[in-house]
């Protein structure tokens, strides 16, 4: 609890608000992870935590250390950039793995959802 008492009131209140906002969004995302019924709906849930949640908490951290040390401390930007670049990659890989597994096991659960305007009309009628 060393440095927090030195924070001016406006910074403390802003940090408190951003922290509550970020952790609330992250919690909502994981509640969605529990509540949603199918895998493809659940893929959307963690992005709430990685965009809004992580963004708000990282801004709070940057604000806190910048005010405490009275110089801009921006290295949290690295985590922001890293998280925003990597989350889409993992989620895309997961979605593709899921679609691949669905196709090999249940043959056409995705393709019936897509309907007749499928991505690769000619191709997967041959694959079945």
């Amino acid at each position: 609890m060393s440095g927090l008492h030195d924070l001016p009131a406006w910074a403390a209140l802003a940090i408190a608000f951003l922290l509550l906002l970020g952790s609330g969004l992250t919690l909502l995302g994981t509640i969605g992870l529990v509540r949603f019924k199918t895998f493809y709906e659940r893929v959307h849930a963690p992005t709430l935590g990685t965009t809004g949640g992580a963004g708000a908490i990282l801004i709070a951290s940057m604000l806190c250390f910048s005010v405490l040390q009275s110089r801009p401390v921006l290295h949290e930007l690295l985590i922001t950039v890293f998280v925003t670049v990597t989350t889409p990659v993992t989620l895309m890989l997961l979605a593709r793995a899921a679609i691949y597994r669905d196709r090999t096991e249940k043959a056409d659960s995705v393709d019936t959802l897509v309907g007749d305007r499928g991505v690769n009309d000619g191709e997967h009628s041959a694959r079945r």
């Binding site: 709430l48 990685t50 989350t87 889409p88 895309m92 979605a95 991505v119």
Partner: peptide, 21 residues
């Protein structure tokens, strides 16, 4: 792909380079 997946509510699933779908 990064934009579509990073916005909550939409997720990139598949892209076919031959017909651009």
């Amino acid at each position: 792909a990064c934009i579509v997946t990073a916005t909550p509510g939409t997720a990139w699933v598949e892209y076919h380079a031959d017909n651009g779908r």
